[in-house]
Nucleic acid binder design. Structure first.
Lengths: 357, 357
DNA sequence: CTACACTACTTTATCGTTAAATAAGCGGTT
DNA sequence: AACCGCTTATTTAACGATAAAGTAGTGTAG
């Protein structure tokens, strides 16, 4: 069933039927009624969305690009909050939200064709590595695009936080408490799935801007306190799950110079660190201080000291920016949303000053 | 930039350019290379998704219809798990997932036009009321559709659980413990936003099949134990948030015949009940037993006795069914997924037998 | 030397819609 | 009878792509 068939049935032009649906005020009430009635009778459900999109050159859909398999997003509380904020804005603007499927290639990267095949008016790109081909493909489409968290690119509207500053503040907190022996548990520095200690080269060369920034923040605070960064082991996990943090902490805590404090680049990892500590008979915060990032784990025991950021607001801001772009309005300067260090029960002064060697 | 322009530039037919992208084996490697190179040079990103969908009569997108504003879905752990399961299957089949925006009308129902406007190959409908116009509109499209949780409709592929049986089991557990005074905290019976005690008429007339079934399950167990259902107050909340459960429990627990046990149709509501009990100085489970539904609140204190169901599997099954339908394969009989009563710390025998009056 | 399969590409027609321009008719005025 | 502004409906021409059928040209077998 198509517009034309309905039109034929009634002896009117297709345009008139189209108008019945799109500009009801442009035809007489009587005719409009007859059209809807005929449509009903013949089982026509209104203009076909695809034909309509082709002609109007817009889809009223926003695409979401995620660097991992889609289903991981629903496992990550930060991503879920982000989507909540984003969806509330897009729905308010009567836009659909398309979760773009991108099969993962062998390299860990995602199939860039996904971005080319998505019938959307614009993209929201969530947390990708610097040179992700999927991102390049999306930007290549020339559609309005907002990047969230990473990578910040010249000329591309961006939403994120000051990761370096926040990380520095987190490390500063531990330093103030008197800690001198640190370990870092980080999520991926690059999307190659590596797991293990990351040397400074790998740290600086990280393909994930957020990882790079947070490590830099930790480092600058540590060095500002006169301590050598070389004394800090950075354990890289290939993702951000508690089990990965658990393994990482296991490695760090069994090294010969055991840290008295562990900085984690996510709460999920920090949760794993807590579990590892418990397993090793270390009590937190007495024997070990732990700091998370994101503030998405309200139920942790002990409650996590962490860097709070408003993920929902991030989604909502990204949504508002994209909606403005779609409407052809100007978009305000890239803004960094605020973060706040929330001190809870997982950090305390070290039991003793760290011995000199 | 279009196929035709690239074709013109090279002096070949549009079809050949199309084939370069869709059936690379149908043209010589040399020409293919020239085409890609020209496309690159002119900034062509491959076939336009909308034109392509129009011609092929498919979009490779699955629409998700939700009975509440979309952003609520990301607040509901059951819905999030469901989406995780669903998205893993759709992504595996290289299908996009379109979260369909449906502005809420005054009646609380959602704008049915949303279903007509969505450019999708099929729908997954998540937990809707019996006569929701949005659902009718979706089914009217004649696209492959799978309904999840409710409403089960003759001839429409369905995924859900045996709510009545599970609820009956939950109530049975309390009866076995010796409880005789019950209260029920239920999420919406009908989408009209009512809050307060629901009489048996409203219970039976509920527009949400799941609500109806769970209440029936509670009731059948209570009556099977020889107790009158009229003695059980059912407090209806307009949604499923902890704050609503809190208010509901406040009302039930301050009535003159205070229940010794409260059955909640969701964990979220049960969490509110726990909060209300604490506020009133009642300890759980000593003074009050509480049972949830869904098993999505691992962190509750005390840990909730609840009905466990596998939301992720539900999403994944719905996805598999829809994918089969899209491929024109047969879909197995509507199946009810299993549930299991998980007894934890929120239920115990009543402190004393309920006094006769 | 015809027949036939095969490759590499083209032609034609169509998917379902809507923007923009155009026309026809209205009662009334000049 | 020409022209008004206004409403209502029509005509025309894309929007960007691909299915299906068709046409050369080439090699290969009988």
């Amino acid at each position: 069933m198509t517009l034309a068939r309905i039109a034929g049935e009634l002896g009117v032009s297709a345009m008139t039927v189209s108008n019945a649906y799109n500009r009801p005020d442009r035809l007489s009430g009587a005719l409009r009624e007859r059209i809807f009635e005929t449509a009903d009778r013949l089982g026509y459900n209104g203009p076909d969305p695809v034909g309509r999109s082709l002609r109007r050159q817009r889809t009223d859909v926003v695409g979401v690009l995620y660097s991992n398999p889609l289903s991981y997003a629903f496992d990550d509380p930060a991503a879920v909050s982000f989507l909540r904020g984003l969806s509330s804005v897009t729905e308010g603007a009567d836009l659909g939200l398309l979760l773009v499927p991108a099969a993962s290639g062998a390299s860990g990267g995602r199939d860039p064709r996904a971005a080319a095949q998505a019938a959307v008016d614009g993209f929201v790109v969530y947390s990708m590595s610097d040179e992700e081909p999927l991102l390049t493909a999306a930007l290549g489409r020339g559609l309005p695009t907002v990047v969230v968290d990473q990578p910040a690119r010249q000329g591309v509207p961006f939403v994120g936080v000051d990761d370096e500053g926040a990380a520095s503040e987190a490390a500063g907190h531990l330093l103030e408490l008197g800690h001198e022996g640190f370990g870092v548990v980080s999520f991926a520095l690059s999307p190659d799935g590596r797991e293990g200690i990351a040397d400074p080269g790998r740290q600086e060369g990280a393909a994930f801007q957020v990882s790079r920034s947070r490590l830099r923040g930790y480092r600058s605070a540590v060095e500002a306190a006169g301590l050598p960064w070389s004394g800090v082991s950075v354990f890289e996990c290939p993702g951000s799950a508690a089990t990965l943090g658990h393994r990482a902490a296991g490695a760090l805590l069994s090294s010969k110079r055991r840290p008295t404090a562990i900085l984690s680049t996510s709460d999920q990892l920090a949760l794993g660190v807590l579990a590892a500590a418990e397993e090793l008979g270390l009590s937190v915060p007495e024997d070990l201080s732990v700091v998370g990032f994101d503030d998405v784990s309200p139920g942790a025991v002990p409650p996590l000291t962490t860097v709070r950021q408003d993920h929902e607001e991030k989604g909502s801001l990204a949504g508002r920016m994209l909606v403005s772009l779609l409407r052809g309005e100007d978009v305000p300067e890239p803004r960094r949303l605020p973060t706040r260090l929330v001190v809870r029960g997982s950090t305390a002064p070290p039991r003793w000053p760290v011995p000199a060697s």
